[in-house]
């Protein structure tokens, strides 16, 4: 029979591996950017545009302890300490937001009545630029962890809610019918059909939320906080320390990129079954 000779396609896996591997062209782009930066830094005064090597050196020297920063009365006077504070807040907001949004999105996809109540609320929150909430949260919760975490949590909830809801809506009804005709109980349908079928889209939503969360957390720290990368940037901006700001930004960018890479890898591992290539004919 001709079946034995049919090659087994695995285009999806190959494509993802390629995306994870470092592309020489991408490196060329980054190199080009550094070159332009270096050249521009030669022409401009360091207070306006610090040279890249100086920024990296600053990042290294202030990574574990930064005596300069302690003059500003910061609790964690090092880049590592501030970054840890910011990362903790982002993680907390992701967990709380996901714990709310995933069940809510899945339930509203099936329960019209609940959806009619929740959807308008989510859509309103989703349309208003979420940063506008920052002053209110600062009034209500002060400059501690709570305001920043809450702000990011709202954002995570809106993004993940829509992703989870769409995921549940997009399951082809044939899978549930098929499972029922094979003898699956409603509980088995939930465990073996609804959850695995929605995981890829929910994880995708979480990844998008995570990418946005870093920026929101940093900006909300900038607007009022006592610690964090955003706070560091705020005090350094007050001292017009461009090099310090760049060093803090570089660290934030690196951490966010590494986290996104880890998320992409985890998603790839968990959704190996998913086709990323169009399905061929018979």
């Amino acid at each position: 029979m001709s079946l034995t000779t049919m090659p087994v396609r695995d285009g999806g896996a190959r494509r993802v591996t390629r995306a994870l591997r470092f592309d020489p062209m991408a490196w060329l782009g980054i190199l080009l950017l550094l070159l332009v930066w270096e050249l521009a830094a030669c022409l401009l005064p360091p207070a306006i545009l610090p040279a890249p090597l100086g920024v990296v050196r600053r990042l290294c020297s202030e990574f574990l302890s930064a005596p300069d920063l302690s003059y500003f009365g910061l609790a964690n006077a090092s880049l590592l300490g501030s970054m840890t504070y910011t990362a903790e807040n982002v993680l907390l907001a992701m967990i709380v937001g996901a714990a709310f949004a995933i069940p809510l999105g899945l339930v509203t996809a099936r329960q019209e009545l609940i959806r009619a109540v929740i959807d308008p609320v989510m859509m309103t929150v989703g349309t208003v630029p979420i940063l506008i909430l920052a002053p209110f949260l600062l009034i209500w919760f002060g400059v501690g962890r709570a305001s920043a975490v809450l702000l990011v949590t709202f954002y995570v909830i809106v993004v993940v809610y829509v992703a989870a809801q769409r995921a549940a809506e997009n399951i082809a009804p044939v899978f549930e019918d098929y499972a029922a005709t094979l003898g699956a109980s409603p509980r088995a349908v939930l465990r073996d059909i609804l959850i695995p079928a929605t995981i890829p889209e929910i994880l995708g939503g979480l990844r998008i939320a995570l990418a946005g969360a870093w920026g929101l957390e940093a900006v909300s720290e900038l607007l009022g906080a006592q610690q964090g990368i955003g706070k560091i940037i705020e005090v350094l901006a007050g001292a017009t320390d461009a090099q310090g700001i760049m060093a803090a930004l570089l660290l934030l960018g690196l951490v966010a990129t590494v986290c996104d890479g880890c998320a992409a890898w985890a998603i790839h591992r968990l959704t190996r079954w998913k086709s990323s290539t169009p399905v061929a004919g018979a």
Partner: peptide, 10 residues
């Protein structure tokens, strides 16, 4: 079924 119903995640 007429449509493909084989579970893609198994």
């Amino acid at each position: 079924f007429q449509k493909d119903s084989v579970f893609p995640w198994m």
